[in-house]
Amino acid sequence: MECRYQERFETVVDRISTVVLGKQPQIRLALTCLFAGGHLLIEDIPGIGKTTLASSLARVLGLGFRRVQFTSDLLPGDVLGVSVFEQKTAAFVFHPGPVFTQVLLADEINRATPKTQSALLEAMEERQVTVEGQTRPLPRPFFVIATQNPIEQSGTFPLPDSQMDRFLIRVDLGYPDRASERFLLELGETKSHLMRLETLLEPEEIGAVQAAAARVHAAPALVEYVLNLLEFTRNSPEFQVGLSPRAGLALLAAARTWAFLCGRDHALPEDVQAVLPYVVSHRLRKAKDFRELTADEAASLLARVPLP
């Protein structure tokens, strides 16, 4: 069995959790998301460590990192970049925006206007930027961590369901547990730790991990299980709309990556179950009050679909 990356993955989690305290599950999910080639949505209140998570991920993996604070007056050009007429050369020169990085933290994405949001989301989907007719590829890997504050609703533009689908995984960080918080309070700012994090993975290695994760074996019985899950959400009157085929692909990709990071070359129902709450919760709405599911509610779905 291929388990070359397993210890390495654990090391990555360990290292990051010295900076982002008590959040191992979220770190694992974030890594899964990254290696599955998807983007991550973090839903939580400010000051909980989203930026730290994003930058420490970038640092440990040796990736470039940029952060954009989204506001209502942010324009698509501010994110993607603009062409500026340069006197010296008498030509338009493209000044790349912050999107041209490997790890992008899009803070409070729901504060930006839908126009700006969709500009970013298009870049996420296509992994390239088209400005004034010219298409420029984004660096690889390209990983967006977007955050949303679910509580504050005034002056925000909630992402439409179609855009939510672009995020592979959604997590909420939540408050640190008491022990971690005590540790935090005693130690003070962890920014200094961040600086000391060393790179554990070469950028080209990340591509190899992504390719290997995509090759993880999904047996017919497992595919059957995923199909049953999809069918259940489509048939259950509990949900407004069932999961899309894209959601099914996302679920399988995330399960494969999870299995790979656990050191296996084949995915198990347990892998699907581990990632499912975070992959589907933002893609389903309750039929009763059109509310998105919480991860716990999504997990309860699992108990109702027997293994084939």
Binding site: P269, E270, A303, R304, P306, L307
Partner: peptide, 9 residues
């Protein structure tokens, strides 16, 4: 074994 439980679990 609950019907929805995976073999490892």
């Amino acid at each position: 074994r609950p019907p929805a439980q995976g073999p490892r679990d």
